[in-house]
């Protein structure tokens, strides 16, 4: 028994090493499945919960064009949530279980959404920085070893790059606008820059899931490598806006060919994850309220389907 399990695991790893995709019906180690369900559902929950801070500004978007673009963007996030929930379902976890895990706190979502969106500038900063950080991660996940996850990432990446552009466009308009608008842009950059860096997770040396996930190619690049990529790409974008960089210790390192940066406030990171963000309870209670309010609709839909099936059967009989 043990030796055959060993053989299965070896064959599985060999497949991954050969860059072949694992598909839903393929054998996989229980831990691989668990690890994937955790990561993919967390990713899906982030899309779904992320609809709230951005949805918060749809009714106040300052031009009709911005309103339409933001509405389309938030709608895309719902779509991404759907792809990712579906990918998780191929691993044998139904959507109802995923929602329950989110609502009871068993499953996490990106902690950045525990920060409030206070101004219109925050919608620009989220699109630019938060979606920008997400793209760094997602581009590498297009090569992840699980087929359905990799394929949903390919589709999601296309849409995310439109999201990042809409966010950056908002920032460009603010930065070249009135002094108040420019101040709004700077303030949003200051508040969202560090939380965006935190999105890549703890340093590699402290990351609980990294090593095994890298071996199984669930993750393709480490937290720190992805974070560095994001830091480097953001510097010229901030310069173009003519805004001040929030990291005062940022300096180009010729030898590494990368920017060296100041240390992230990990205490804040842990504190927000552990419930001390402005919106932790709000995000979940909003989700629970909408879900509970929708219960009668879901029940009616189900009852209707059952009735129609019965009626069709009795007419046929």
């Amino acid at each position: 028994m043990n030796s055959s399990l060993n053989e299965l695991e070896q064959a599985f790893q060999a497949k991954i090493d050969a860059e072949q995709k694992i598909e839903p019906k393929d054998w996989m180690p229980a831990k691989y499945r668990q690890n994937l369900v955790r990561q993919v559902s967390q990713h899906g929950h982030s899309e779904v919960i992320g609809m709230q801070p951005e949805g918060n500004w749809i009714t106040r978007a300052p031009s009709l064009r911005r309103k339409a673009v933001l509405l389309a963007k938030v709608q895309d996030e719902a779509g991404h949530g759907l792809y990712l929930y579906s990918a998780t379902e191929t691993l044998g976890t139904p959507r109802a279980d995923l929602i329950e895990a989110l609502q009871t706190g068993k499953a996490k979502y990106a902690s950045i959404f525990n920060y409030p969106t206070q101004t219109w500038g925050d919608i620009g900063a989220i699109g630019w920085l938060v979606d920008g950080a997400a793209i760094c991660n997602q581009v590498s996940l297009q090569r992840t070893s699980y087929g359905p996850y990799a394929r949903s990432m390919i589709r999601i990446c296309k849409e995310e790059s439109f999201h990042q552009r809409q966010g950056y466009q908002i920032m460009v308009e603010l930065a070249k606008g009135t002094p108040e608008q420019k101040q709004m842009a700077q303030d949003s950059l200051n508040r969202f820059y560090w939380p965006a860096l935190m999105m890549f997770g703890p340093h590699d040396s402290k990351s609980a899931h990294s090593a095994q996930s890298m071996k199984w190619k669930i993750k393709r690049e480490t937290n720190d490598d992805l974070r560095q990529k994001f830091i480097d790409q953001t510097v010229p974008q901030i310069e173009f806006l003519g805004l001040e960089h929030p990291d005062k210790e940022l300096v180009w390192n010729e030898e590494r060919g990368h920017y060296d940066s100041g240390e992230i406030d990990w205490e804040e990171f842990n504190s927000v994850i552990n419930g001390n963000g402005h919106c932790n309870r709000q995000r979940i209670s909003h989700h629970v309220a909408a879900h509970e309010e929708g219960l009668w609709v879901r029940e009616a839909q189900h009852a209707y389907n059952v009735k129609m099936k019965a009626r069709r059967a009795s007419t046929a009989a």
Binding site: V48, Q52, T59, L64, A68, L71, Q75, L82, G294, V297
Partner: peptide
């Protein structure tokens, strides 16, 4: 209709309602 964003009875309806809202905002424009 846009006020339904993140408030729908399930995710598919958030998307559908967003579509209809977008059509109307587009029409207004």
């Amino acid at each position: 209709l846009s006020e339904w964003t993140s408030n729908g009875p399930f995710l598919e309806e958030d998307i559908a309602m967003g579509n209809v809202a977008l059509d109307y905002v587009g029409r207004a424009r």
